[in-house]
Amino acid sequence: MAISLDKIRSTAERVAASHDLEVVEIDYQSAQKQRVLRVFIEKSAEQRARLIAEARAAASNPVSEDMEFASGLGAWNPEQVSGVTHEDCEKFSRDFGTVLDVEDLMTVEDYTLEVSSPGLDRKLRTAGDFERFAGNLVKVQTFEPIAGNRHWQGRLTQVAGGKITIDRSALKQKGKSRKIPSETVEIELSNVEKANLVPEI
């Protein structure tokens, strides 16, 4: 029997919600005898907003232990803060693993369940993802070439009409600013094969 990732995702979302978490992505890899189910989670939108507000408040307090984290908020979009702790991953993994077994959703006997945050280089999959992270540096690979190129990197400046716009003048290489003429490229969302954020620290 084939594994239904839709059912697994639905179940993961149900378990995550009970922990004030959200499922970002689910990935299943099967190679020979190694089978790995990876689940990427983050705090719920409400919890992320609370964490960001607390960090910003801490930034105004010179003796705060959270000063280092709070001062870093200006370096990237606060939405990149997943807020997930090791304890969150452990609790979710335990409960989700139990439900997977009870409901017999994994039709293979031996597999490894891995749970983690999406990271600062998180993947962008939906229009909502692109809208949420507008203003960030992104790396995009397309199905079909645009002007002879399938690989694009730059700042995501706009998401509208089923297209994203990337400003390539924001590129940096090897830690040094690279002078490029202002250049933008429009990419149809349907032409995006894969995309992810490029960390700015």
Rank of each mutant, 00 (worst) to 15 (best):
D27S: 09
Y28P: 00
Q29E: 14
Q29N: 05
S30A: 15
A31W: 10
A31R: 10
Q32S: 09
Q32M: 11
Q34S: 09
V36Y: 05
V36I: 13
V36W: 04
L37R: 06
R38V: 14
V39K: 03
V39D: 02
V39F: 03
F40C: 02
I41A: 02
E42I: 01
E42D: 04
E42Q: 12
E42Y: 08
S44G: 05
A45M: 01
A45T: 00
R48N: 01
R48C: 02
R48S: 03
R50V: 00
R50S: 12
I52R: 14
I52E: 11
I52G: 08
A53F: 09
A55I: 00
R56W: 10
R56E: 11
R56S: 08
A57F: 03
A57L: 03
A59V: 13
A59Y: 02
A59M: 11
S60T: 11
S60Y: 07
S60F: 09
P62V: 13
P62D: 13
P62Q: 08
V63K: 06
S64G: 05
E65C: 06
E65P: 15
D66L: 14
D66C: 06
M67R: 07
M67I: 15
M67Y: 09
F69L: 13
F69V: 10
F69R: 03
A70D: 00
A70K: 02
S71K: 10
S71F: 14
G72D: 00
G72L: 10
G72I: 00
G72R: 11
L73F: 07
L73D: 00
G74N: 13
G74M: 08
A75S: 09
A75N: 13
A75D: 00
A75W: 02
W76I: 05
W76H: 14
N77F: 14
P78W: 12
E79R: 13
E79D: 14
Q80R: 12
V81R: 13
V81M: 15
G83H: 07
G83N: 08
G83M: 09
G83Q: 04
G83D: 01
V84E: 03
V84N: 01
T85N: 12
T85E: 12
E87R: 12
E87T: 04
D88P: 07
D88Y: 07
C89H: 09
E90P: 00
F92C: 08
F92G: 05
F92D: 01
F92N: 02
F92A: 04
F92E: 02
S93H: 11
S93R: 13
S93W: 12
R94H: 06
D95N: 12
G97A: 05
G97I: 01
T98D: 10
T98F: 09
T98V: 12
V99E: 08
L100S: 07
V102D: 14
D104R: 13
L105M: 06
M106T: 07
T107E: 15
V108N: 01
V108F: 10
V108R: 03
E109R: 15
E109N: 12
D110L: 13
Y111A: 01
Y111S: 00
Y111F: 04
Y111W: 03
Y111G: 01
T112I: 10
T112D: 01
T112G: 00
L113S: 07
L113P: 04
L113Q: 08
E114D: 14
V115N: 11
S117R: 11
S117C: 08
P118A: 09
P118V: 10
G119M: 02
G119I: 04
G119R: 06
L120E: 02
L120G: 09
